[in-house]
Design a protein around this nucleic acid. Structure first.
Lengths: 225, 225
DNA sequence: AGTCAATTACTCGACTTCGAGTATTCGATG
DNA sequence: CATCGAATACTCGAAGTCGAGTAATTGACT
């Protein structure tokens, strides 16, 4: 009845910490924060405790001891099991070796973009580009500082990855904006026309008919389907 | 008491569809699939129905009619409300204009990579690079086909974005591998040494002490903390 | 000696996600 | 004309996510 496979990378982080040494949950969370791992692995208390519960149920970790000081809440110290060690290696190996399908918010936004008007979209993308550039500058500065302090890149390689993705996104948005603004982007006329017609109060069906009529030659795909 | 803000982009997709015309849930799901939106917006039945329930409760959509044909399950047709229209525009605007923090799996993997050995990591990254290149080739081919059929780029811009990110990841992994293999990567010696010591059965504390001793000069940060 | 912010340490429950399961109808094929 | 797979249309419950809330302790500064 193998319970649904554990998915939250936070559980993997817990395993790697417990391979180093036994810890109690709060210590795990502080250690992750200290090492800036919470920037690449979503960390919040609720999830941490439920993820630990889940690891326990699967036998990947076990209770080492529970202590109590004064009237403070009980502290439970956990340790990794042999099986947990194996799962850690397998899971981490998979994360590194196998590209996973992700669903970035911006990708969703782009795919629904035609629901807005062209000019609105341009303005929004310009704001994005602005913020991206600013964030990117901040990120670069922090990496430089870390390297000046002599921290080996090994411990911030994930931030370099983030910067690489950010650079790519900046280039993408920049080029897209150029094409949209110059009108070179294929489809921008039809997009503009649809919103023009819509805003005159026509129904979607009527808009559709007009569009097919006006753009039939340019876009043969309008006929299909 | 504003219920926790709706987060699933699938709800936004539902709103954009209902702005086009009223629909029942199953039709929404087929339409999204037809337009290949399920590649950029995670779609599964359970979520679809619960997201619709949620939109209904917030008054962003309303029931237009419920019909029943034969003994088939009832079909409920939904329509967007004025408030829903507004929320759609605001939400989509935010997706496009504001970079959101994402937590890609690979970023998590990279940040925990030191838990594996150097050579193992190299082998895993090589497998990733391989698969990335293959997937990228497939993606490019599909985009080319779409453009040959005359489909305007507007309706597949999200796939171009995906390709751009993939390109960046390929370059990143490629460079990282070069540095790891040549030993030019700062920290690779210390990383290797830690795993060597660990595998001789030393405890984490002892490993720590040895490392501090051996690498004190190269890495001043070892002293701090 | 008091107090106030920060830190330590976890709990709770409302909400969301997920996908396997159910049940009907349509269409193609032998 | 029987049947079998694909498509239609949704239900259900187990599991996971999230962050505000609680409550004690430490430390710094008046």
């Amino acid at each position: 009845m193998a319970a649904r496979r554990l998915n939250n990378p936070l559980a993997l982080a817990v395993l790697t910490l417990l391979v180093e040494r036994p810890m109690h949950p709060y210590e795990m969370s502080s250690t992750l924060k200290e090492r800036s791992k919470q920037e690449s692995i979503k960390l919040n208390y609720g999830s941490l405790y439920s993820v630990i519960e889940s690891l326990l149920k699967r036998g990947l970790i076990e209770v080492q001891q529970t202590t109590r000081e004064g009237k403070r809440p009980e502290r439970t110290v956990y340790a990794v099991t042999d099986e947990g060690r194996d799962v850690m290696v397998d899971w981490l190996s998979e994360l590194l070796s196998t590209p996973a399908k992700e669903f970035p918010q911006f990708e969703a936004g782009l795919s629904l973009m035609p629901a807005l008007g062209v000019d609105q979209a341009i303005a929004l993308l310009e704001r994005r580009l602005d913020q991206l550039r600013r964030q990117h500058e901040v990120g670069r500065r922090m990496l430089r500082q870390a390297s000046e302090l002599g921290l080996p890149r090994l411990f911030s390689i994930e931030h370099e990855y983030e910067l690489a993705l950010q650079t790519a996104e900046i280039e993408f948005v920049d080029e897209l904006l150029d094409e949209l603004k110059s009108g070179a982007f294929p489809g921008v006329q039809i997009w503009r026309r649809i919103h023009e017609l819509r805003s005159t109060g026509l129904s979607m069906d009527e808009v559709d008919a007009r569009i097919r009529d006006e753009f039939a030659e340019e876009y043969p795909w309008l006929d299909e389907q």
